[in-house]
Design a protein around this nucleic acid. Structure first.
Lengths: 147, 147
DNA sequence: CTTGACCTGTGTGCTACACATAGGTTTATA
DNA sequence: TATAAACCTATGTGTAGCACACAGGTCAAG
């Protein structure tokens, strides 16, 4: 109603409006703004940040990239690269290949942790609780060796 | 040589000595000290921290517990509980059960991420690099939808 | 006594937000 | 029109577990 002439008057969103449209929390929008991933202009009267449709596209891109494993600093690089007119595709492919390798390693580590924890529970089911003493803090944990 | 009478003169280790004996870095010892997981006394002349065999046991326990998935704050709780003479075993069992569930969830999330990334690489292998334009930052990433 | 290697404590940075706080805006009601 | 309640804002801080930078202290060799 109050914004019929979209061509002359730019649409301004406040934090929560932008957040809702992108399906994220206001805190996320504020954080991305703080680290300059979003660059709204400032309302002069009260200092509120004002976002536009470009910011909305950008925010949606960020969430999409995050969902594919890109870190915020990598996304920042991609955005800078892209807005300087160069294709970010090569970088994008490289990063995801690297992330696949990293993530595979992390998965292995967590699987090994899971194994250790499940083994501990099994082993501990036969052991009683004990009071600590000078030599021992918790005999359950200590029964699993130093490494 | 210089410390033959261990019963009367307490053995004091400096940061690196303790770290080496426990197989961790000096930074780890300093960090644990900073968060009061270790509580050395202060050398009066130069402010250096001085650790003893009790600290060594404690440090080894911490690393052992971390290897089983306990967080440092949980380990702190266990240590406090234990040094007040109560058995930490119940707490220890509860935490590891909880951690197993949490870790299983995290594993699933990382596996799903891995799937998404591998699917992306496969899909992208048929797509060319493109220059960005007003509507698109990176068509590769954007081809994977908003969620 | 000086040079150099090695060590020290403290301060800061990292990721990606979540939460607390004090205050401003807007809406409903009297 | 006044006011109270609901909602929103920007900013500051906390989170986990270290790693690294820094300026200076210690200690053995020469």
């Amino acid at each position: 109603m109050s914004q019929q002439n979209q061509e002359t008057i730019p649409i301004n969103y406040k934090v929560k409006q932008l957040a809702d449209m992108a399906g994220v929390s206001s805190d996320v929008v504020r954080y991305y703004t703080r680290i300059s991933l979003l660059e709204p202009k400032q309302e002069k009267l009260n200092g509120y940040k004002l976002y536009n449709t470009h910011d909305l596209h950008r925010l949606r891109f960020i969430r999409c990239a995050k969902n594919l494993g890109y870190s915020l600093s990598e996304i920042a690089e991609i955005l800078i690269h892209s807005s300087s007119g160069k294709s970010p595709c090569l970088m994008v492919r490289d990063i995801v290949e690297k992330r696949i390798v990293e993530n595979r390693k992390k998965l292995q580590e967590l699987e090994q942790l899971q194994d250790r924890m499940e083994e501990a529970v099994k082993k501990w089911s036969d052991l009683p609780d004990k009071l600590p003493n000078g030599n021992s803090v918790c005999h359950l944990i200590e029964s699993f060796g130093e490494l």
